[in-house]
Design a protein around this nucleic acid. Structure first.
Lengths: 343, 343
DNA sequence: TTGTAAGCGTTATCAA
DNA sequence: TTGATAACGCTTACAA
């Protein structure tokens, strides 16, 4: 019968086992295991014949058996905070995953995604703590969810971005926000601006804090006043509102650094709406170098945020942690200024 | 020493085993296993005491052991075609994943992502065929990559969208493209349009074909001429070009159905550029209901494509297949017309 | 309905 | 350097 029953879909031939390889190569299973795992202490000729056997049998080790015996899973979990069920649509998240996947592809580790489900809050926890995973990657961009920071007691774990809590003993990768913001301020200064404002991000998020600090540092170096500060929440709308407030102060403004491109885009629209020119009247620099930077006209000069690299680096650090190799606890990725038309 | 060496980060207490549960509950391991797996033939009181023990021990089954013994992995792979390393940034893909993850969260299955790496073409294949996975989900949106269609001989596999090859014996979920396009045409007709054009998608992709057919069906029912057809490749730019050609024909056009919102957005810009009004002079209907539909002004009337549901349904079908429960071979999701301003 | 015991395919320990 | 052999934690006949 040609129904939809899945019964017939199982593997046709059972996968070859280590034992079959051993038989074919005329050695013990232990030796095959050694060869497969790259142990050095095997005679070259045996290595050769084992490899031969592996190839002709098309042998591939059974992960479950290997995990059971070695107590290593070769699995890395990407933990997706439930808060945003829309995370996947977030280009930041997507790009981090891309980087993670890219690096992991060069290793033996598999990536598995778990979204901590609202339906079953403890399930994720038990899964992670239950020895089903070698390590965890946490990506909670611009979010207040820090519920997983304690996990690090039980499992190697690397965060995307400096965690709010326990930053002192967490492993994480972040972009050098302060340096990037400094470069942005310096660009504004280099183009001759004297009255430079910033639209800062939330001060309860590390990127918000660091980017403001970088901007301040730049202005101080040039001996400029750093009083022109308005705050937003990283959304386009908040950037527009902040820009309106900046203009409403009645003080001269000829340069603005927005702490991300979305807020810059909001400011951008407001500036034009007021009949001012970019960059002639007001120069504008953003941060992130995402689609919002090129989605406006004139396009934004901005600070490039190497997101895919961040993902790659996270994965690399986690693997090093898992394998007990020394690794730095925090990695700060360099930024670069992308000069377009707005400044 | 407080170095970065991962050695110290392992689990503190070893996870409780089935055997410990059995001891605590005063039954055999077999009985615990039966209870944990929901087997019916266990005395209620034993069920109770086992569940109690499970809870107090916070027992969670070891996946590797379970897999090894049962030869079932409880793992589903999301296969990401290598062609696009940027898939993750594709909102279609992201939304499908969201739906998949949502459904899988209600099951025992874990989701694991593999991007078939260019570096190691056979690796993915061996992994999938090596009994490491119970089933595969393939998402290759708008892509010509059909390299995995043969996998279905060895493994349950469900496709997102009707596969180009072997559609007759593949399992897949697709939106009802034809019905959606028909509804779009009918909307145009209902608003009194007489000269209705379409910007069709590539005719070597099922959605391209089906949406054109649906549009034709609508026009035929109303006794209208279906000669106004131009083709695009689902990009904004191609939509603009197609619209220019439509206008250049010199024939009256008062309604346009674009086979996706991106092409509609391209057409949208061209129509306005020609000094024509939307919808007064030309009514415009898109397909997909994505960000491009609301990103233009006036916003697009369009056909809603339930992408997250598509992901959910795919996962559900795959699990049914894996577990040998009957499931339909193809699922066609209904669409709905979203009326905004453009028609 | 319950328990016993034999695997499942590796890795790891320990002798040789 | 190599090979027996005992785990690893669970499922599943088969017996009771």
């Amino acid at each position: 019968m040609e129904t939809a029953l899945g019964t017939e879909t199982g593997q046709v031939r059972p996968a070859p086992t280590l034992e079959m390889v051993a038989a074919l190569a005329g050695v013990s299973r232990a030796t095959v295991s050694r060869v497969v795992n790259g142990s050095t202490s095997v005679a070259p000729e045996l290595v050769h014949s084992v490899e031969q056997a592996v190839r002709t049998l098309n042998y591939v080790p059974n992960r479950a058996a290997r995990t059971l015996a070695s107590r290593r899973t070769y699995t890395i979990t990407l933990l997706v905070p439930e808060s945003t069920s829309k995370v996947f649509a977030d280009p930041f998240f997507a790009t981090v995953v891309e980087g993670v996947a890219k690096y992991l592809n060069s290793t033996d580790y598999m990536l598995n995604m778990v979204t901590s489900s609202e339906a079953n809050p403890g399930k994720t926890q038990r899964y992670l703590m239950g020895g089903n995973v070698d390590g965890v990657l946490v990506v909670s961009h611009h979010s207040g969810d820090h519920s997983w920071e304690h996990l690090s007691d039980a499992l190697p774990i690397v965060f995307a971005g400096r965690p709010l809590l326990n930053a002192a003993d967490s492993y994480y990768v972040e972009v050098d926000n302060e340096e990037g913001a400094l470069a942005a301020a310096e660009r504004l200064i280099a183009t001759g601006r004297q009255n430079i404002a910033t639209i800062a991000g939330p001060q309860d998020m590390p990127p918000g804090v660091d980017r403001l600090a970088g901007w301040r540092a730049g202005l101080h170096r040039a001996g400029l006043n750093d009083a022109l500060v308005e705050y937003g929440d990283f959304t386009v709308a908040s950037g527009a509102v902040a820009m309106e407030r900046l203009l409403a102060r009645g003080k001269p403004v000829d340069g603005v650094f927005a702490a991300n491109d979305q807020m810059a885009a909001g400011a951008h629209a407001v500036i034009l709406k007021h009949g001012l020119r970019i960059p002639e009247d007001i120069a504008l620099v953003g941060f992130d170098d995402d689609q919002f930077a090129t989605g406006v006209e004139p396009a934004l000069t901005t600070v490039h945020h190497p997101i895919a690299e961040l993902g790659e680096k996270m994965a690399r650090m986690l693997v090093e942690l898992i394998e007990g190799r020394a690794t730095e606890r925090v990695c700060r990725l360099p930024t670069s200024l992308v000069v377009r038309e707005s400044a």
